[in-house]
Structures are given as structure tokens and as C-alpha cells.
Design a binder for these strands. Sequence first.
DNA 1: TATGAATGAGCTTTCATTCAT
DNA 2: TATGAATGAAAGCTCATTCAT
Lengths: 188, 188, 188, 188
Amino acid sequence: MDKKHQIIQAAIELFATEGYEKTSINAICAHVGVSKGAVFHHFKNKDELLREVFIRMAQIISEVGDTVSPINDGLPAKERLVNLLDHIFLSMANAEQKLYYQFDYQVRCQPSMQAILSDLIEERQQLMMASFQTILCDIPEADEIVDSQMLIAEIDGIALNYLFADSDYPLEAIKERFIKKTLLLLGV
Amino acid sequence: MDKKHQIIQAAIELFATEGYEKTSINAICAHVGVSKGAVFHHFKNKDELLREVFIRMAQIISEVGDTVSPINDGLPAKERLVNLLDHIFLSMANAEQKLYYQFDYQVRCQPSMQAILSDLIEERQQLMMASFQTILCDIPEADEIVDSQMLIAEIDGIALNYLFADSDYPLEAIKERFIKKTLLLLGV
Amino acid sequence: MDKKHQIIQAAIELFATEGYEKTSINAICAHVGVSKGAVFHHFKNKDELLREVFIRMAQIISEVGDTVSPINDGLPAKERLVNLLDHIFLSMANAEQKLYYQFDYQVRCQPSMQAILSDLIEERQQLMMASFQTILCDIPEADEIVDSQMLIAEIDGIALNYLFADSDYPLEAIKERFIKKTLLLLGV
Amino acid sequence: MDKKHQIIQAAIELFATEGYEKTSINAICAHVGVSKGAVFHHFKNKDELLREVFIRMAQIISEVGDTVSPINDGLPAKERLVNLLDHIFLSMANAEQKLYYQFDYQVRCQPSMQAILSDLIEERQQLMMASFQTILCDIPEADEIVDSQMLIAEIDGIALNYLFADSDYPLEAIKERFIKKTLLLLGV
DNA sequence: TATGAATGAGCTTTCATTCAT
DNA sequence: TATGAATGAAAGCTCATTCAT
């Protein structure tokens, strides 16, 4: 219905599968069945469209994450951590979300997109950090900041390898080893 | 002297800092001080240039890695593993190589580049796996394949976060926690 | 008014006088007073423009031919044949149409254009054959298919020599000898 | 052996099958296994190469024709004419020569090539005319000039249709009808 | 709101030609 | 004679963006 949303949705799909630079406004129009004028009516220019696409993608990904917070209320740190990790792995294994994650990595590795989205990327990073810090601060063995950053990075790496690998990536097995390893380090 | 090498070098730098799509052949020419015709004399097309650039980059990165093998001869698995991890972290912290690593991540996350380089990427991945498997197969607690893939992914993630983060990333601290954690898991 | 028609018209003229390969899109733009982008807005690429130009040219040439059919209604075969030949010779002698005919021969003799237009050329050929066969089938002495093909070929040759010869080609005299000869063969 | 001849030969083949404009000097080099420098050593430029190619092609085609003259010595006009026509049809049906004929038509229909070769084309045309005139001047019913030109044109047309048609063109049948028709007209 | 014709800059690529060796 | 690196002009084409309707 809402053309603006349709355009954003089409753009996400095309940006993720073809890349931002390789996706022409024309291609987006064809995908939605809308005119070029319509796109430029809703978005000042292609960069602005990219920003809105990024915001939408971040929303979708974090919507899943939002379900963890209430569940975690009142639980001990160890369980909260495992729940969080579980949720993240579940989310990245979700076929429907694969596109969003792929797009996310593209954005972070591509200088031209980084420049356009640096503030939004920063914001996202902060949120991620906060999620982990609020848990790790309750674990005495943990180095709150360093371990948060390490966990985020490690998960990033696993997602990256999983998303851009052939279909037979042993995500489940890796997840288990990863959680085991993390709990060992944190002594919980 | 060798114009072909100069072109490749300029291309690496520009691809890494500006992105492949955003780097025009013209820009490369200007950087080297050579005509457009010369580029197409040495490379069939831009894709072919990208491939040669990728091969050159992989060479440079692995040259560093090659120094680990001889040192590791005859050492126990634990030390060999630590040496390997040390070397990788050293290599990614090397300011001169930052460019190559950044380029590497771009390639892996950008669908258009992936398509052009898929075979070469695959090859590189295999090599990385082999490096880890030959060590982990000597550690009884290790799950040779899964742990190799996990370690590769985790390091990937740390590198990714380090390379594209602001300058104050606590790489050294993370490295230490990471090695500690890994040794804990492997029980060595 | 209609830019698309203007572009086609300019293209016909330039293709015919300069040749397809030698006519740049730029030259067509300059001729019409339009930007390169406009040409590619209306035609997917140069090949597609060539196809539309060919179709338009075939239309113009056959419009003249269409006037023969009604006139021929109910006449004896001999008269119908003479009328048809008359019309064809009249048409090729028409100064305004010379361009179209020249273009037609270029297309047929140039491998690159042939490849692009093979289906349309075939179609045209069929139509020509039909025109002759519907007349020759009423003449007992005629070998319907062979004679049709022969007549078409002969006229083709005369047109070719006339169109690409210096101005003093004796077209009228040849036409008379040709018709005489043809009627002799067919015994009418 | 003779590189110059090899280059000309390769050029004929490529010009005939791909077209002059579409054939790059590079392609010719690759075909012969010779360097670009060698081509420009033997030929001032591409136009000059085209001229030499045309001259060579005319030689090859007329070599066949030369065998008719001695045979015709002392024969009556009718037989000489039939011999000439026979030879021409035989020559165009010769698979090895198809290329040369195709090239010939290309040259005549393509403005850019015409301009480069106009004098040579003219010369060839004169020779053809002479062949026919020396026979027709001995046939009282013939209109020496007009009939020569008509015959040349008709044969041109038949060759054109035959050369650029699919493989099932009824050349032999057409040839017989054509000779019959011609003899009828000339009353011999 | 929406259309799509039009623009113009810039892209990759091709190519005849030159020239130092 | 011959090579092939290098040039530079020009080609076909793409694309974000504008604007009259």
C-alpha cells in the first residue's frame, strides 16, 4: 500500500543482493512498479534513500532483539547472557533476515556507504555494546568493556562467515562451542 | 618501473580506500600517471584488474604468514597455535597492511566483487582452514573442523571491528582475552 | 514534435549515407538537437535503434507497394505482373526513396547488421516472394517458385547497380528490356 | 611464408565474415600470429590494407574469368555468351570463393568503403562491361550497352541473393531459366 | 502525488596509430 | 623487419537528477 515502504523494501532487497552502487534507481522502480519521479518525491536523493533503508533494516533486526530484554528480567547474569547469545544466533539463522544482515556487512565494509551512514552505524554499535555491558557488569570475572567488544566482534565474524559461505556452514556446532568457550572464560 | 605493477599498486590503494565501484579507471591512471589505454593493454578489463589486484593482495598478506610455518617446526601444538594467533594479530595491526585487510573485507561483503572473485576467495579460505587444522588435529580436546572454522570466524570478526573502528580499539587487550579463552576451551 | 520519430528519421539518413558502424549516436544527437541520454531513453541500445529504423524503412518502401494490390484486382496475370514491375521500378527511381533502398542493401550485405536484423530481413523476403507467386501461379509457362526468386534477384541487381552507380545509369532502357525479356520467357 | 600475403589473406577472411569496421587490426594480428607493428610496417594504415585486400580479391575472382577468354576464341557469339555465363555461375557457386564475393558486395554497399575504393571499383566495373560488350556486339538483336548492363545487374542480383540466402537457394534452376530467358531475348 | 522525457556528466572499453627497442 | 607498450580520441552506454505536465 504505502509506496514509500514498498520502495524501501525493494531497495533493501536489491542493495543486499546486488550492492548499493550496482542498484540503479531504475531497477528499484521496476521492482516496485513505480515511476522514477515517485522515488525522488519520497527521497531527496539516493543517499537519503540509503539512510532510510539502513534505519529500516536496523529496526527489523533489533525488533527481534527487543524480545530478549523482557524475558531476561530478574534472571541471573549467566542465563541472561546465554539468552542473548541464543537470540542473536537464532536471528542470523533466520532465512528471512539473511538479507538484512548481508546488507549490514556491506555497509560496514564499503567506504562510500560508510561515509553516508557513519552516524547511524555508530549508534547501532553503541546499542550493541550496551546490551552486552549490562549483562557482563554483573559477572565478576568479566572485563566489562573488552569482553563486550570481543563478544560482539566474534559474533560478527561468525555471522560474516556464515552469511557469505556456501550452504553447509556448521553454524549450530559453532554456536555451541562458542557458548561453551565464553562461559568457560567468564567462569560461570 | 614496471607499469603493470604500478597500476596494480595504485588500484589496491584506491579500491581499498574508495571501493571498487567508486574507483574509476581514470582515477587509477591519474594516480600512476599513465593513459587509459595502457591499463587496458595490461588488463583485459576492470574485472580482470580486480582479480590480479586480489591475487597480489593475497600474496602480500600470506607472505607474512609464511614466516610462521618454519618457526613452528617441531613445537608442541599449544605453542604452534599461540604462534599462529600471534602472527595473525601482528599482521592485522601492521599499519602498512591495513589497506589490504580492508580490501579483503570489502571483497567478501560486496556481491558484485564476490561474483568476480569467488574461486580465489574459496582458495584463500581453504588455505586458512588448513593452517588451523594441521595444528588442531594434534589437540585431543579440539573439534578439528568446527573449532578451526570458529577460530577463523572469530578472528575475522575482531579484524573487521578493529579495521573499521575508530582509532581507540583495544586490540591488544582483546587479543589476550581471546588467546586465554581459546586455550581454556582446548584444555591446553 | 515526437522526438522518437525525429531520432529514427535522422538515423535512417545517417545510416544510409554514412553507414551504421560509422554513424555514432553522437552524430544522430547532433542531427536532431537532442542529448545522448534521450536516445537511450527511447531505444535500449544502438542495435534496437537499428531494428526500429529498419522497420520504419520497410514500412515506407512497402507503403508504395500497397497501392498496386487494389489496382490489380481482377486483371489478367500478364497485366498484374507488368503493373507490379512498373511500380517497383518507379519506386526505386523515386529520389526521396533512394536513401531507404541504399540502406536496405547495406543491411543485407553487412554481416554485423544482418545478424541483428535476420528475422526482419527474412520477413521482408517472404512478403516479396508472396507478391510474385500470387501472380506467377496464374501463368502456366511460369515456374512459380524459381521464376519468382529469379525476378526478385534480377530486380535486386538492377536496383543495386542503379543506386550505387554514377548518375547516368540507363534505368529506363534497362527496365524496358527487362520487362520484354520477362514476358518472352513467360510466353504471355 | 610471405607475411604480407598472410596478412592480406587473413584480412579478406575477417573483412568478409565480420565486416571491415568490425575487424580490428588486433584481430587480424591474432589470426595470422603476427604483431601489430608488422601490419603497420607492411601497410601505411588500415585504409591502405583495405585497398590491397580489394585488389587481391579482384585478382582471385578474375583469375577464374581469365580461363574463359582463350576457350571462347573463334566461337560464335551465342556459345561465347553461354560460356561466359556458365563460368560466372560456376565461380559464384565455388565454396572457396564465396567469401570473396561476399566481401565484394559489402564494399559496394558500404559508403565508407566505397569512398576508399571508388577508383578500383570503377575499374572492375569497366572490365566486366568489356567482357559482355565484346560478345554482345556480335549479336544483332542485342542492345550492346543496355543489355550488357542489364546482364551484369541481373547476375549481380542473383549472386547477392544466393550468397546471403540460407543454404537451399535454387541456384542451378535459376541459372537455367536465366540463360534460357537471355537467349530468347537475344534471339539466338 | 505521480509520471516519464530529457539532461549531462561520467563510465568502461575499443582502436588505429606511433615509437623506442 | 619486427615487437608490443603506450597513447588519445572516440565509441556505446549508465545513471542520478530535474522538471514540465
